[in-house]
């Protein structure tokens, strides 16, 4: 890791650990002041000037520290603003995963479901088709009618309804709402990798401390073998997410986003099962920290596409290309 990256990763870990139990507003101030949301903003504009791989460091840490704020979403919003050549307003910016509505010259009418921290954010960024092209749309949350919802981890996933709301809009070349959704999947893959790492860490610590039959649980081979699998899934999800972020920095990245979400979803399923099993009843309590990871892992598997969704997408693409192209296509992705 380069020196700058090490610094970024240490700062992120410190800030997210410090702000973990703070109320959202205060936590967000700390996060914003540390510049975590500005990792993709150019240095000239006061950001970190980082790559998508740098962004992954922050997003994975968000998962590993069970960060209860739309930090990954805000980073994605800055990337969209870069692509559209606009400057984001100040505040907490979230993402609208799948807008259902239209632009009518001056305003946006329609609704966006599943907006992370919609109620808390100042603005929501999304992509809407207009004419032959695609527009980045930035709307003020204050202009929306908010229907609150939460995912199983208690994270706000609100529906925002707009009626001819005034907006900032700009053509966003190379993007459409499908790509936005795929990048959302990539964000979640990094968070999943982080949360699995968090669950592994807890599981190792817990089984080394907890004694049964006169010795630590970690001494039992049945426990060791399960935790080894959990460690394998940690490695696999980390690698899949990292490859997607690398691809996002160099090319289109759609296949990689899909594959990373598909793989990390599978890892999440295995990991939640093992982490809970080795914790016994303690892991099933509100008091103990494990659920901060596992409830998010359950929620995130559905958000931005489950295995059926991405499996179908990849599967039809691969089948259409046929067996003769399969391998050449697969290796071309990393060349």
């Amino acid at each position: 890791m380069s020196e700058l990256r090490t610094l970024l990763s240490e700062t992120t870990a410190r800030v997210l650990a410090d702000s973990r139990n703070a109320p959202l507003e205060r936590a967000w101030t700390q996060i914003a002041q540390a510049g975590l949301a500005s990792v993709l903003i150019r240095e000239d504009d006061g950001g970190f000037g980082g790559t998508w791989s740098d962004a992954m460091i922050v997003m994975k840490a968000a998962g590993q520290h069970a960060c209860a704020a739309p930090l990954p979403e805000n980073i994605l919003a800055t990337a969209l603003a870069n692509a559209a050549g606009v400057t984001l307003p100040d505040g907490m910016i979230t993402i609208g995963p799948r807008p259902d509505g239209a632009l009518n010259g001056t305003g946006f009418t329609g609704s966006i479901a599943g907006v992370p921290w919609g109620r808390n954010a100042s603005h929501v960024a999304t992509i809407v088709a207009r004419g032959g092209g695609h527009q980045l749309v930035i709307a003020k949350v204050a202009d929306a009618k908010i229907t609150p919802h939460e995912n199983p981890a208690g994270e706000p996933r609100d529906t925002l309804a707009f009626d001819n709301a005034p907006i900032v809009t700009a053509e966003i070349p190379g993007w459409d709402s499908h790509r936005l959704y795929a990048f959302g999947a990539m964000l979640r893959s990094a968070q999943i990798a982080g949360a699995i790492a968090g669950a592994l860490e807890l599981s190792v610590t817990y089984t080394r401390e907890r004694q049964q039959f006169g010795r630590p649980l970690a001494n039992f081979q049945a426990i060791q073998q399960q935790l080894a699998v959990l460690a394998e899934e940690t490695a696999a999800s980390d690698m899949a997410a990292a490859a997607a972020f690398r691809a996002a920095g160099t090319g289109e990245g759609l296949f990689e986003c899909a594959a990373a979400k598909l793989r990390t979803n599978r890892a999440a399923r295995t990991a939640t099962g093992i982490a809970h099993q080795v914790h016994g009843a303690m892991g099933f309590t509100a008091e103990y920290d494990l659920h901060h990871f596992t409830r998010r892992l359950w929620a995130w598997q559905t958000e931005f596409g489950n295995e059926r969704f991405w499996g179908g997408k990849i599967g039809s693409g691969v089948a259409a290309r046929g067996p003769a192209n399969f391998w050449a296509d697969l290796v071309a992705l990393s060349e």
Partner: peptide, 8 residues
């Protein structure tokens, strides 16, 4: 589904 999963 299977092709997608195995490819990933």
């Amino acid at each position: 589904q299977l092709i997608g999963r195995m490819t990933a």
